[in-house]
Amino acid sequence: MTGTLDPFSPELRADPAPAYRSLRAAGRLHEFRPGIHLVSHYADCDAVFGDPAFGHGYFSGINPFRPGVDPRTLPGSFLLMDPPEHTRLRSMVAPSFTARATAALRAQITRTAVALLDRAAAAGEVDFVSEVAYPLPLNTICTMLGVPAADHARFGVWTAAISRGLDPDALLSDEEKRARVDAVGAFGEYFADLIERRRADPGTDLLSELATRGSLELTELVDMAVLLLIAGHETTMNLIATGLLALARNPDQRAILRADPQSSRHAVEEFLRFDTPVPFPTRVTMRDVEFAGQTLPRGTGLILLVGSANRDPEAFPDPDALDVLRFAGNRPTSRHLAFSHGPHFCVGAPLARLQGEILFTELVRRAPDFELLDHTPAFRNTVSMRGPKALPVRMPT
């Protein structure tokens, strides 16, 4: 590999910022593997997201990240697709995830957040990841889909296997690849059964709406349900966990939120920029492309280092400093790229933002003096999704 950074190196999990700075200084495009390049600058990542010449290429047989793998065995539904199929399937669920639609969930999310925080405070010391950051988004997306609460506990092993399996296959053992396939199959069986029950006795949930609409095949419905469940809680869990870690390490910024809890909606945008939950999205050239001074043939893979782009000083002044008011008011700043943009803009972004806003608003109201008991936590072994394994905290009332 040329350049200075292997973005998947375990040594970079705790603090990749210095390596990102080194890579940005070394140039715009770096060959990571033959036919696969790293992109680290904000302007370049921003351009790729908005250009239809870059897609995923799975169903065209040109994706270099999992060569020879049948995309139907992978989790992702329309996330793996390109237009027009991506457009068709995305349009089925997008109306349920607009800011206006998700605002209707505010009261329910607030009740859940308050209950989780109060229970954590009553316990005194808890793992914030497992007791708050994980169950809040899982409860939210399961409620939206109509998944019975009694079934939530069975998802842990499956979601862990799929989250690890989202990493490039070159980083996975044969056992991890088999675990991904098994988890996709287990989720498929679960949702196929639930969808049939919803068709027979529909409710007011999203899965019932999709199941009774009649425009989706069963396999499409199942794949979509798996995608929404995984994406609907894994990324938000990491947003909440890394946001708490950032506040614990920056007491001056915590004081700002404590003085004005409503500023949490701005802080969430900064948490997404500062420690991006999905730091390495990928794209593939769908045709020959001139990019960053080079000609990239069709089927070239790009690893977009969004974590680096969101720390690029050409886009964000003092990028390695946490500033919870960076996105407040009329202060001029670039948009962060945590949700990408363009055709593959994260459909669940409004829901993730709402949950983050509510959680941090209630946290600084109810337990502003929380104490992180480990300031150097270990991060999870996945690279496609970034977040700490555990965050032991003391929560005085």
Rank of each mutant, 00 (worst) to 15 (best):
E176F: 02
D174G: 12
A53R: 15
F360T: 10
H56T: 14
D182I: 06
R180K: 15
P34K: 10
T242S: 14
V393N: 02
A150R: 13
G146E: 00
I256C: 11
R254Q: 14
H336V: 07
A248L: 03
A53Q: 14
R331E: 09
L337Q: 04
F327N: 03
R353W: 05
L12I: 11
F360I: 13
F280C: 10
T87R: 07
G188M: 02
P297I: 06
L80F: 08
M144P: 06
V147P: 06
P332I: 14
G35L: 01
M385P: 04
L391H: 04
V48I: 11
R366L: 04
M237C: 12
F345S: 13
A338Y: 03
L239R: 01
F339S: 04
P261C: 13
H266G: 09
I256N: 07
A115I: 05
V364G: 08
A321Q: 14
I36C: 10
T159Y: 00
R119P: 09
T87K: 05
L105R: 09
E217F: 09
A255D: 08
E11K: 11
A122H: 07
L80A: 10
P7H: 04
L229A: 08
L136G: 00
A390C: 13
F291I: 06
S208N: 12
F32S: 01
V93K: 00
Y20M: 10
L138M: 15
E362L: 08
D369E: 15
D167S: 06
T235N: 07
D70T: 12
A367E: 03
V181M: 01
V284L: 07
A133G: 12
F370K: 03
L359S: 02
F187L: 12
D169S: 15
L74E: 00
F360D: 07
A255P: 03
V181F: 00
T295C: 15
G165M: 06
P377A: 09
M1P: 14
H41V: 11
Y20Q: 08
V347A: 12
H41K: 15
Y42S: 01
A99H: 11
F271V: 05
T73E: 11
R380E: 12
A246V: 05
D288Y: 09
A99I: 13
E314Y: 08
T235Q: 05
P368I: 10
L23H: 08
A107N: 03
Q294A: 15
E131K: 14
R287M: 11
R24F: 05
L218I: 10
G124L: 02
D275L: 09
L245K: 00
R88Y: 07
I141R: 02
L171Y: 02
A47N: 05
L105M: 14
L207C: 12
Q253T: 08
T300V: 11
T361R: 10
P350K: 06
S91I: 02
R164W: 01
D70A: 11
V157E: 14
P343M: 08
E85I: 07
P251S: 05
R249F: 04
L354Y: 00
L244T: 12
L218F: 03
R90V: 01
R265W: 03
C346P: 08
A225H: 00
P67D: 02
L227Q: 02
L12A: 09
T376L: 12
D205F: 08
C142G: 01
D82I: 12
L38A: 07
A231N: 04
R311V: 11
A122E: 13
G55W: 03
D151P: 11
G50S: 11
A99K: 13
A47K: 09
R254S: 10
G232A: 05
P148F: 05
D118F: 08
A248I: 00
